[in-house]
């Protein structure tokens, strides 16, 4: 099976952030492989280890994003394409258009995405790309298997889980509930340097100007109304438990 996994470099949401004049500032410019994409890479590796095949990762981003590509290669992906952009980031629909034009002349069985970006939680790129490429797809997959030329997806729906069979080629977007992504071994890290990585300049893809025009824009950032810590009760559990129960009734009026 030939897997393409779309991976994204995202800021580490655990790192301290602040807002200055409406701009988002990260104290350290720490970036990571989007956790959902790491799960997508892991699952593609597991399936190709079982059924044979190849995993190629694709990333759109600036030069520094190579670090993230290396991470996926160190996990075990076989090769990579880096579509290099200048500094700025785009919205999901622009990324989807760029990916669509990249995939136009490619052969594959499965394209995997993460179900969402960890920093923006947009969750749009996957299904947009499927639509552009006219592929059957499923999102929010929590388990994958391959059988009889089909990709079987367990999808977490609103109430329960849906078991869906997709004909190949198809697209799937992955939840991190699907697996624990492997931590690259030292051998993996060493090999990653020698694996093929092709860099394509964004301009070389000849994408329609209009497709690169974002229809949405972030105009600023703002603190959330701060939620102050309330009362903390330490002491005899018997006492404190009853006290809080009464407060919920009398003070908060929520029981």
């Amino acid at each position: 099976m030939k897997f393409y996994v779309c991976i994204k470099q995202v800021p580490d949401i655990d790192a301290p952030i602040q807002i200055k004049n409406g701009n988002l500032i990260q104290d350290t410019d720490r970036t990571v492989l989007n956790a959902y994409d790491a799960s997508a890479v892991e699952e593609a590796l597991v399936l190709t280890e079982k059924h044979g095949g190849e995993v190629e990762v694709v990333l759109i981003g600036p030069n520094q994003a190579k670090e993230t590509i290396r991470k996926a290669l160190a996990m075990g992906a076989h090769k990579a394409t880096h579509i290099e952009t200048r500094e700025e980031s785009y919205d999901s629909s622009v990324y989807a258009s760029i990916l669509a034009s990249f995939f136009e002349d490619k052969d594959y069985d499965v394209i995997s995405c993460g179900k969402q970006s960890q920093d923006t939680d947009a969750g749009l790129t996957g299904s947009m790309l499927a639509e552009h490429l006219d592929l059957p797809y499923s999102t929010n997959a929590v388990a994958l298997s391959a059988q009889n030329g089909q990709l079987r997806v367990k999808r977490q729906g609103d109430a329960g889980q849906e078991l869906i069979a997709l004909p190949l080629p198809c697209l799937v977007s992955c939840s991190n509930d699907m697996n624990e992504p492997r931590i690259p071994s030292l051998k993996g890290i060493m090999q990653s340097k020698r694996k093929p990585m092709e860099t394509i300049a964004l301009d070389a893809l000849e994408i329609d100007e209009s497709a690169l025009e974002a229809k949405t824009a972030v105009t600023g950032y703002r603190e959330k109304p701060k939620r102050e810590a309330g009362q903390k009760f330490e002491g005899e559990p018997e006492e404190t438990a009853r006290q809080v129960a009464r407060l919920l009734d009398e003070e908060a009026n929520v029981v």
Partner: peptide
């Protein structure tokens, strides 16, 4: 360049 490494998470 290809034979020396910095490896993290190890």
């Amino acid at each position: 360049a290809m034979e020396s490494f910095i490896a993290t998470s190890i």
